[in-house]
Design a protein around this nucleic acid. Structure first.
Length: 280
DNA sequence: GACCAGGTGAATA
DNA sequence: TATTCACATGGT
C-alpha cells in the first residue's frame, strides 16, 4: 500500500519568470532549506515542501498547498513589483532587479523570524544556518517529508525551557542571553498586534533584548510582510556609499533615506539589491 | 593573525 | 544626543 502522504501530496505550478526558487531561497531571507533531488527541501515552522524548476515552471510539492501558496506569496503579482524597480532612477536598482527578477518575498512565521534574525546579528549566513539547524534538532518536533527526517522550528515555550549555557553550547556566542530573555518574554505575554502600523510594530519589537533596528526591520519584512521596511546591514551600507553616493553614517538615517525613496516597495527593492550586492 | 559576518547594548563624553 | 567598544564564534 502507498503511504497516506502519497494521496495528499499536491503540486503548485507557477511560471518561473517571477518565481525563481534558487534566487528566492538564496537571497538571504530564509535559512532553513537544503538541496534535494532537482531542487530544494524547504522548511517553515513544522511544514515542509519540495520545490524545483521544470522548464519554464517552478513546481512546489507539498501536502499543505494552502500554507505554501501563502508562504511563497503566490497571490501577489510580481511583474508589477519588477516593473516598479525597472522604472527607478538608479542604475543599480534596475541591474539588481534584472538579475533577481524571480525573487519573491516569503511570508514566514513571525516567531521563527524573530529568533532567526537575533541569531543573524554580526554573523555570517553559513553559521546562522548551522545554529538554527542545531536548535531545531535539539528542541523541535521530529517530522518526516518525502522520506527525509527534519525537525520543526521550536515554539517559544520549548525555547524558554533552556538556559543560557544550553545556547552557548549550541554555538550562540554572546547571543545566548538574548535567546533566554526573548523566549521568556514571549511566554510571559509579550504579544505583537499584527494590525499595528509598521513604525509601531517596529517600536514594539525594539523593546526585546537583542532586537535592534536592523533585526526589527527584517522581522517586519519577512515575518509580517511589511514591504515598507528597508533593513540596513553592512552590505546595504556599502551599496549606499558606492551606488547612491550617500554620506550619512547613521544607519537610522540611511534606512529613512531608502524608505523615502521606495515607500511601499522598500522591502522588494532591498532584496533585489542585497542579493545583487552580495554577488550571487 | 587580522579581519569580517544580514548588529546590539552599554559605557562614555 | 552622538561615538565608541565589547561581545563569541567560525570562515577566509
Amino acid at each position: 500500500m502507498f503511504p497516506l502522504d502519497f494521496y495528499s501530496m499536491k503540486k503548485l505550478i507557477y511560471d518561473s519568470e517571477f518565481f525563481d526558487i534558487k534566487d528566492t531561497l538564496e537571497c538571504g531571507q530564509i535559512f532553513r532549506f537544503k538541496p534535494f533531488k532537482d531542487g530544494y527541501l524547504i522548511f517553515s515552522l513544522g511544514n515542509a515542501c519540495y520545490a524545483y524548476k521544470s522548464g519554464d515552471k517552478t513546481v512546489v510539492e507539498t501536502d499543505d498547498e494552502e500554507y505554501f501558496y501563502k508562504f511563497f506569496d503566490l497571490g501577489e503579482d510580481y511583474s508589477r513589483i519588477f516593473g516598479y524597480a525597472m522604472q527607478c532612477d538608479f542604475d543599480v536598482v534596475k541591474k539588481s532587479a534584472s538579475a533577481g527578477k524571480g525573487i519573491r518575498i516569503l511570508r514566514q512565521d513571525p516567531e521563527e523570524m524573530l529568533y532567526s534574525f537575533i541569531i543573524s546579528q554580526n554573523n555570517n549566513i553559513p553559521r546562522i544556518k548551522g545554529i538554527i539547524e542545531k536548535t531545531c534538532s535539539a528542541l523541535g518536533d521530529r517530522k518526516e517529508f518525502m522520506g527525509e527526517e527534519y525537525y520543526a522550528f521550536p515554539s517559544s515555550e520549548k525555547l524558554a525551557e533552556k538556559d543560557e549555557k544550553f545556547y552557548s553550547e549550541l554555538g550562540y556566542g554572546y547571543r545566548a542571553g538574548y535567546m533566554t530573555a526573548v523566549s521568556k518574554a514571549m511566554t510571559e505575554g509579550f504579544k505583537i498586534d499584527d494590525s499595528l502600523p509598521t513604525a509601531m510594530l517596529k517600536a514594539k519589537l525594539l523593546t526585546l533584548k537583542g532586537v535592534g533596528p536592523k533585526v526589527a526591520d527584517c522581522i517586519s519584512l519577512f515575518g509580517y510582510h511589511r514591504t515598507d521596511s528597508f533593513p540596513v546591514d553592512t552590505w546595504i551600507e556599502k551599496l549606499y556609499v558606492e551606488d547612491f553616493g550617500g554620506t550619512e553614517k547613521d544607519r537610522k538615517k540611511i534606512t529613512e533615506y531608502f524608505q523615502n525613496l521606495f515607500g511601499e516597495y522598500s522591502g522588494y527593492v532591498q532584496q533585489y539589491v542585497f542579493f545583487y550586492k552580495r554577488g550571487n
